[in-house]
Write a protein that binds this DNA or RNA. Structure first.
Lengths: 220, 220
DNA sequence: ATCAACTTTGTTCGATCGACCGAAAATCTA
DNA sequence: TAGATTTTCGGTCGATCGAACAAAGTTGAT
């Protein structure tokens, strides 16, 4: 079976340069190219031939390394979600005990990730507009746990009244939407005179989200 | 030219039933079918044959009535955005003078429209992920004015301090994202056990957005 | 009733899609 | 070095796409 056990040292036989890239490298290049292609055009609109070209290889390599377009798509999401988890984990590293500080850090991490890797938001927005096996897989494999985690943390904070009164059913999509649409729709924002790649804008955006989500309700 | 001047009374010649539908009716059916198709699969993934079948007609009718898939797409957005304008205008009808009440009503109208017509959000999210002539048209024709309107109203309210401190560059997408992702991604929400078609959820969602956007900043 | 305008219907075209196959080339193992 | 394994590379297959065309059928005005 191809690539399952990476046995070799992947060294180009001392002194010589490899002519064939290792499975790992090609798979990596294909996943990266596919992430951009899926994000830009959705699953159906994405072309495996364009992916292969961007990765500097051949379309038939997708069958060889991933078997189908569908499985390649799943590997793309595995990678993106692992990156998201890593970013959030890093951001919340120093606030393990204070629940409010933890959510604060998580929101900022979410915004920064959406800015750095808008492809994840784009793919999810493409996919979640109509039912499919992929969407079912995505929710079961990934979305559900994240939503449960957020909802639990939020209802805990709600008890102490330190947080905005947001319906628990709407919370997840409200926060994700507020945090990521600006970057998912960056090409539109650019045309409107906004530059979502500006790091200072990202920080101001994160500040704003923390301010509106993590503030006790005010009576007018 | 077909259908430009609707001269006739469109009456089925007393007693008899028409065998041909009028241009107006077919165009209407095609636009409706196309809106759903574009929303579900994006521009490239949408099939003109499926649209025609859903509209009870033939694919070649699209060429006849709209010339190209591209022009049909533009007519879909003209209609959706007209509907959005009508909904917002109706919602803000009774608060012409009080700027704060006006934005309050506009936010609620936006949420209700996103819930009622998720297709607009879906199409925009599909389209805004990568540059295209359609996106340029969309921004120039529609998005820009709306953003300018919102930004102006917001900065006015900011002066009186009655409103959350949100960066003006990020405001538009933050609000739209918070208001519409839940409905744009309704199939995902359903799988997660949330029902975005529940009118009470929609109202609670609108309440929450008004609460977090239209509240003076609190210091912690 | 006639005729021009409008609408429907069926078909064809070239292009692109994902999946698949097999032989050649390179690499690793023994 | 010989043989087994991995990777590359070019090509083919049926399906579907948007666009286009040409008749044929329907309608309303004259």
């Amino acid at each position: 079976m191809a690539g399952t056990p990476i046995t070799d040292s992947n060294e180009p036989a001392p002194g010589r340069t490899r002519r064939y890239r290792s499975s790992e490298v090609v798979r990596d290049a294909l996943v990266n190219a596919a992430i951009s292609e899926f994000a830009a055009h959705g699953f159906n609109g994405a072309s495996t031939r364009r992916m292969a070209e961007a990765a500097g290889t051949y379309q038939s390599q997708i069958k060889y390394h991933f078997n189908t377009k569908d499985e390649l798509w799943r590997r793309c999401l595995d990678r993106l979600l692992a990156e998201l988890d890593a970013t959030i984990a890093e951001a919340t590293d120093h606030s393990r005990n204070d629940p409010l500080a933890l959510v604060d850090a998580a929101i900022r991490g979410l915004v920064r990730f959406a800015a750095k890797r808008p492809q994840l938001s784009r793919i999810m927005m493409h996919e979640a507009t109509s039912p499919s096996d992929r969407l079912t897989w995505l929710v079961e494999e990934h979305s559900s746990q994240r939503q449960a985690l957020l909802t639990r943390a939020w209802s805990e904070l709600r008890k102490s009244g330190a947080v905005a009164p947001i319906d628990s059913g709407a919370l997840y999509h409200t926060l994700i939407g507020a945090a990521s649409l600006l970057y998912a729709n960056a090409p539109e924002a650019q045309l409107m005179g906004v530059d979502p790649s500006d790091p200072e804008l990202v920080e101001r955006h994160a500040d704003a989200l923390v301010a509106i989500f993590l503030s006790a309700p005010t009576t007018r």
